[in-house]
Computed example of a mutant assay.
Amino acid sequence: MAIEPVLGTRSQRAFMGTILLQGIVVLVMVSITFRFVAEHVDLTEPRYKTLPCYLALFILAEIFEVLMAFDALRLRNVIQLVGILAFQLALLVMSILQIHETRAALVTAPGASGSANFLGGSGPGTLWRKVLPFLIVSPIVVGISEFIMLFFVRHLYYEFGWAIFHVVGANPAAKTMYQFYQIMICLLKFDFFCFTGVTMQLLIVVLSTNSAEFGLTIAAIPIVLVLLAGCGLAVQREIKSLMTVSLVIMLAAEAYFVYKLIRFYEPDSEGQYVTTRATLTVFTIVALLLMFTTFVVGLRCFTDFDKGLLSSKLHGQFYRPVNSSLMDDLFGGATHGKTSYNAGSQLEPRISIE
């Protein structure tokens, strides 16, 4: 029996459908919040810039998650599916933080209520109370989606597991090397999102166009994007010189994130970050940790160059029919004889899960 096409099984469709439905609901809630606030305040004022940034971040996050999910299903990449679950948790944290930061932007007179305090109060009859229900819906939807996605990722693991088990044949060392390669590629994708998220917040919310910091942020964009693309190419094609340069630039990128963290809390600059500091801090710390992890895994992948893995990275591996009792031993009998990786089923010749 042939390997199912992308979205060819119920678990794949349900996983993708959950992400799409979540994205629609969350973006509707964020858009309603944005519209209500835009009707009453000038969003170009520094205090209120957190709202357009809030909308932009969630648009970026939901589009990124949909693309990552489709990519993971297309490549049958279980590691990337697990990464999406971690990303979903980060999205939950971000949606909770946005409640705090929106309140910091809108509320200048805590406890005040009524139409006289509509713009600055936090009590009944104020703008804050008007948008609060829509802000609360987002983390609830994201949290529920996380549990649903976790259930279907478990099914997808069984669905993809046997094919992934045979990507590089029966050599345990080769399997370990290929797993590190998969992790590296997955980390690079999430590095892209975190860097883009931090940069977008800085450019939209904080920085003045005539400041030196604005110029530094703009200059960092192409450097980091070239770094991520170059590193991905180097680790896939085992180009040692390009991998060396990428790892060195990665250290410089980590220094950049440390510099930004310090700027958020320095006395001469902390005022401009007041309404977005929580989200910026979380994004920057996550980006820093991801970049450091990418550097460490990159070193590990570098040591695996020229050890016979290049063909598997570029073209995948051939498969053999398998015995169902062995599959039951490995996967706890969870296949139930319903997947395309059953006993005696001839898999199609080649599959790449990069």
Rank of each mutant, 00 (worst) to 15 (best):
D306W: 00
P349H: 15
V82K: 01
V78E: 06
E101K: 07
T176N: 12
T339N: 08
M243T: 07
A105C: 10
A219E: 10
L225V: 14
G8R: 05
V37Y: 05
E65V: 07
I144G: 00
G83V: 00
T275A: 12
I204L: 11
M291C: 15
T294S: 10
V297T: 09
F87T: 02
R350Q: 14
R277H: 10
L251D: 03
K240Y: 03
I262E: 07
R300S: 01
I164H: 11
G8K: 05
L188T: 02
G197Y: 02
A212M: 11
L227V: 11
D328H: 03
P321Y: 01
V248D: 06
L225T: 09
H100C: 01
G120E: 12
S122P: 04
F264C: 03
A105G: 08
L225H: 10
A253N: 14
T33L: 09
E4W: 07
T108M: 11
Y319D: 02
T44I: 04
P267C: 04
S145N: 00
D71L: 09
G169Y: 05
L247H: 08
E146F: 13
F15A: 10
T176L: 13
V322Y: 00
T102F: 10
F295T: 06
A334C: 02
V25Y: 07
F292A: 12
F70H: 03
L228F: 10
L309S: 08
F331D: 01
M243E: 08
E39V: 00
A90E: 06
G215L: 05
T275F: 15
Q80F: 01
G8P: 05
Q236H: 07
L207I: 03
F214K: 04
L309D: 07
R129L: 14
N77T: 03
C194R: 04
P5T: 10
T276F: 09
M16I: 02
L233C: 01
S208R: 13
A220P: 07
R76N: 08
T199I: 07
A72R: 02
A287T: 06
Q179A: 14
C53G: 14
F257I: 02
I221E: 06
A56Q: 08
